[in-house]
C-alpha cells in the first residue's frame, strides 16, 4: 500500500489542489445547473467587469427560477453562489430582497395583480375579489392543481391601463371581470 517514489514525485504537482475548487468542492451543488442554464448565465456574466461575477446574481436567479418551474430552493441558490464564486449568503440576500424571486412553489401561471393607487381608483378591489373567489385562493396561495397562484404586487407602471395584472411576462390592462375570465380561460 505504498507508493513508488516515481508516483509520489509526479503526483506532487506544484499546482494547488484547490485551484480547481470550482469543479471539486466537497458536496458541490453545481450539478443542479444544466448546461443551458449555465450558458445563459454566462451571456449575462459577459456584460460585467471580469471581477464582478456577483453582478450576474440577479439574472442567474431569474434564469434558474424559470428553469425550475418558477421558484428557487436553497440548493439552487447555493449552486448559483458556487457558480459565481460568491458567498451563499449574498445570494440569499438578493433572493429575499427582490419581490420577483419566489422561495416557495408557485402555480404554472403566477397572476400578479396590482392594487396600488391608480389601479385601486379604477377598481382593482373588484378584480381581486373576483380572482380570489374564482380560483378559491388568497394572495400568496396556489390552486390545488398547481395551475394558478395569486400575488398582490405594487405598481407595475401601467397605471394608464388600470386596473391591470401580469401573468408570466405579459401585461393585461383595462381589466374587467369578464376580461379576466377570458384571459384565464385561454391559459393552458
Amino acid at each position: 500500500m505504498t507508493l513508488s517514489s516515481k508516483d509520489a514525485q509526479t503526483l506532487s504537482a506544484t499546482q494547488s489542489p484547490a485551484q480547481s475548487k470550482k469543479a471539486k468542492a466537497a458536496n458541490s451543488k453545481l450539478d443542479l445547473l444544466s448546461q443551458n442554464v449555465c450558458a445563459e448565465i454566462d451571456q449575462w456574466l459577459a456584460k460585467y467587469p471580469a471581477d464582478w461575477s456577483i453582478s450576474a446574481s440577479m439574472p442567474a436567479l431569474r434564469i434558474v427560477q424559470d428553469s425550475n418551474g418558477g421558484y428557487l430552493t436553497t440548493d439552487l441558490m447555493d449552486a448559483i453562489a458556487e457558480y459565481l464564486d460568491v458567498p451563499a449568503i449574498s445570494i440569499y440576500e438578493v433572493a429575499t430582497f427582490y419581490s420577483m424571486y419566489e422561495l416557495k412553489p408557485v402555480g404554472r401561471h403566477k397572476i400578479c395583480v396590482c392594487t396600488n393607487i391608480s389601479c385601486m381608483l379604477c377598481g382593482s378591489d373588484e378584480i381581486v375579489s373576483h380572482l380570489k373567489s374564482k380560483l378559491g385562493i388568497g394572495f400568496g396561495e396556489m390552486t390545488g392543481d398547481g395551475k394558478f397562484s395569486l400575488k398582490e404586487v405594487e405598481c407595475l407602471a401601467a397605471c394608464g391601463g388600470a386596473p391591470m395584472m401580469q401573468i408570466g411576462r405579459e401585461y393585461y390592462e383595462n381589466l374587467t371581470t369578464e376580461k379576466v375570465d377570458e384571459i384565464l380561460n385561454k391559459l393552458a
Binding site: P17, A18, A25
Partner: peptide, 9 residues
C-alpha cells in the same frame, strides 16, 4: 475523510 487541500503523497 477526503480532503481536497492535500497534495498526493
Amino acid at each position: 475523510k477526503i480532503d481536497y487541500r492535500l497534495p498526493a503523497g
